[in-house]
């Protein structure tokens, strides 16, 4: 029987009518429209569907949405704030920690969960933790480097609004003005 479930995702409340068998993965992707969380293996192995629920990293493909009521849910869409990428996002960009990108939201969310609880993990701790997130493109070297870059404070988060300024400047270069 359908019921109303309120989910708090990335700080926003969503009231969704769902069957109790609705998986968190599908609630996020199909009911809320946050498609950054991906489905890879459907059995909790690959980590593409990783999200943080109540401070814990979980597989949303094996989690009932109804069991997440009242808990803070963080997905990849919740990381960038005020035009700034999360340092991990910035690091993955700069250090090439992705190729096809399908596992990337899960990798970044997993890395965030690690650094939230352990801001200075050892190399071994990173490898052990991240081994739950499969990637078929990178061989993991650049994912590892990206995370290490954040751990070592090498990443400067750029204000993405600078981009808008540049575009605005281009827009004001002339021709449209003379036409009007």
């Amino acid at each position: 029987m359908k019921r109303h479930v309120a989910l708090n995702v990335n700080g926003e409340e969503y009231e969704i009518e769902m069957e109790p068998n609705r998986l968190l993965l599908y609630a996020l992707r199909d009911d809320i429209g946050l498609t950054g969380t991906k489905e890879g293996c459907s059995i909790g192995v690959c980590g593409a569907c990783s999200v943080i629920v109540g401070g814990r990293l979980v597989s949303s493909c094996l989690t009932l949405a109804v069991a997440c009521r009242g808990k803070e849910i963080t997905t990849i869409e919740g990381l960038a704030r005020d035009g700034r990428l999360h340092p991990l996002q910035q690091a993955f960009l700069e250090y090439g920690g992705f190729q096809c990108g399908i596992c990337t939201p899960g990798q970044i969310i997993a890395a965030k969960a690690l650094l939230d609880s352990n801001p200075h993990p050892t190399e071994e701790e990173i490898k052990e933790w991240m081994s739950g997130n499969l990637c078929r493109c990178t061989g993991y070297y650049k994912i590892f480097e990206s995370i290490m870059a954040v751990v070592q404070g090498k990443v400067r988060v750029e204000d993405q609004r600078a981009r808008e300024h540049r575009e605005a400047r281009i827009q004001s270069l002339g021709v449209y003005k003379s036409e009007s």
Binding site: G44, G47, S50, R56, L57, V58, S59, L62, T63, A110, L114, E128, W129, S131, G132
Partner: peptide, 9 residues
Amino acid sequence: VAQPRIRNM
């Protein structure tokens, strides 16, 4: 056991 995400669950 498995990996931290599954151990979390």
